[in-house]
Nucleic acid binder design. Structure first.
Lengths: 220, 220
DNA sequence: CAGTGGTCTAGACCACAGT
DNA sequence: CTGTGGTCTAGACCACTGG
C-alpha cells in the first residue's frame, strides 16, 4: 500500500478511494483506514471534493537527537576519545536525575567529541548499569545506537541550556589555546524512554565551532 | 463526547464501545471514529482485550513558545520596555530571513524584557509591515498575542543558540554591573506560520538569570 | 468463559470541487 | 453534472484479556 507513495513527487494525486476499492476488492471503510494511517504519518493529504495527494514532506518536529546525529546531518563524521569509563557511586545530583539512590553504582562515560577532526565538546554521560549491560566492556561508537539495540532509544529529553565561561580544565580538553575568557554552551540533558530515564548527561560545547540548531513544532 | 474524559483521573476506564453504541444509538464504527479522535489527541488510550482508558497526560512536545509564555510558566509576569519601534530598510540578513527584498520596509521592535522585575533579555524583532498592520501605532504587550489575533501564531520555529560574551552596549542595557566578561546566550529565531515567516528575532539573555529549558519529543 | 478492542463488509447520504 | 472525500449504518469474525 505504501508503494503508492514511495517515490512520488508531492502533489501527485493518489488513486481515488473508490478506485482502490475495485482494484483491491475491499470495502471502502477498509481503504479509508489504510489511507488514514498514511495521512497520520504525514505521507498523504486529503482535500475534500478534490482527492488525495502525496503530501509535501512535513517539517521535522523538535526531536531528540544525539551528537552523532547532529554531526551526521552536517555531513561530517563524529569521532570521540574516551577520557574515562567506569562505575562510580552516584552523587546526589546524578542519583536524583537518574531516579536512583545516592551511592548506587552508575556508569560514568566521559568523552571528548569531535566533528571533522575538530574538537567540539566534552560530554559526561551517566546511566544505570542495567540500562546497557556490558557497556563498559565494549564501548560503542554511539551511546544512542547502543540504547537502540536495547529498544531504549530516548523518546523524550529534557534539556537545560546555559552560557558560561570555560574552566581551566575544560580549556585544555577543548584545545582552546588563547588566554581570553571563552564562552561555552552547557547543555544538561535527561533522556527518557517513556518514563524511564536512560541517560543523564552534561555537555560543554565550544561555541566558536558549534551552534545549537532547533526546529520546534506546533502545539500538537 | 469529550465530557467522558474531562475531569477523569488517568487510568479511569471509559465506557466500552458497545456500551456507547446502545447509549447513543449509533453504529460502532461511529463510536470508534469519535474515540479515535480522542486517542490521537492523547486523551484516551486503547488496550486491546481490556478496554479504553483515560490516558495520563502526554508530555508536551517541543513547541514554539514566546518569552511571555516562558516567563508565565515560571509563575512570573513578563514586562518589557520598548527601546525602539520603527520602520527600517531591511538589511541583507534580515531581508533573507524574512523572505523579502533588501531595502524593503520592515518593522523593527527592540525591547528590554524583564521577569519579576529583573532584566533578562534584549530582543530585536523584525517583521514585515503587512504581518501585523498598525503594530507600531499601538504596541501590544506580547507580539505573539498580536500574531494570534491575525491567526498567524507561529506553528514552526527555527532557532540557533550560541554562547557569547556580552558587548559593551548590551552590558548597559542588561544592567550588568561588574567588570568581568559576562557570558550570554544568543538566540536567533525564525518563526513561521505554515510556510510564511512571521517573525525574525535576535535575543540576548543574561545567563545568570535565564536557562533555556527544552522538552523534545519522539521522532513522530 | 464473556467482554474487550481490531478489523472488515456492502451498502448509504452528505458537502464540496471542478467542468 | 460527476467525482471526490466525510460520515454513517448494521451487521460480522478475529485475537486478546481476565476471571
Amino acid at each position: 500500500m505504501r508503494s503508492l507513495v514511495q517515490g512520488a513527487a508531492p502533489g501527485t494525486p493518489a488513486p481515488s478511494e473508490r478506485e482502490l476499492v475495485s482494484q483491491f476488492g475491499v470495502a471502502r471503510m477498509t481503504v479509508r483506514q489504510a489511507l488514514d494511517a498514511l495521512v497520520v504519518e504525514g505521507l498523504l493529504e486529503r482535500m475534500p471534493g478534490r482527492g488525495t495527494f502525496v503530501a509535501r514532506p512535513r517539517r521535522e518536529r523538535g526531536q531528540v537527537t544525539s551528537f552523532s546525529e547532529v554531526v551526521a546531518r552536517r555531513g561530517q563524521v563524529a569521532e570521540s576519545t574516551t577520557v574515562l569509563a567506569r562505575l562510580e557511586q552516584a552523587g546526589p545530583g546524578v542519583a536524583r536525575a537518574l531516579q536512583t539512590d545516592p551511592g548506587a553504582a552508575v556508569v560514568h562515560w566521559k568523552r571528548i567529541r569531535r566533528a571533522g577532526g575538530e574538537t567540539i565538546c566534552i560530554q559526561d554521560a551517566y546511566l544505570t548499569p542495567e540500562t546497557v549491560p556490558g557497556l563498559l566492556d565494549a564501548l560503542p561508537e554511539s551511546l544512542y545506537q547502543a540504547l537502540d539495540r536495547h529498544q531504549l532509544r530516548p523518546t523524550w529529553s529534557e534539556d537545560a541550556i546555559r552560557a558560561d565561561l570555560v574552566s581551566d580544565e575544560e580549556r585544555t580538553l577543548l584545545d582552546l589555546t588563547g588566554e581570553d575568557p571563552s564562552p561555552v554552551l552547557r547543555v544538561a540533558r535527561r533522556a527518557l524512554h517513556d518514563e524511564r530515564v536512560v541517560e543523564v548527561s552534561s555537555s560543554v560545547y565550544r561555541t566558536d565551532r558549534f551552534t545549537l540548531h532547533l526546529q520546534l513544532g506546533p502545539a500538537n
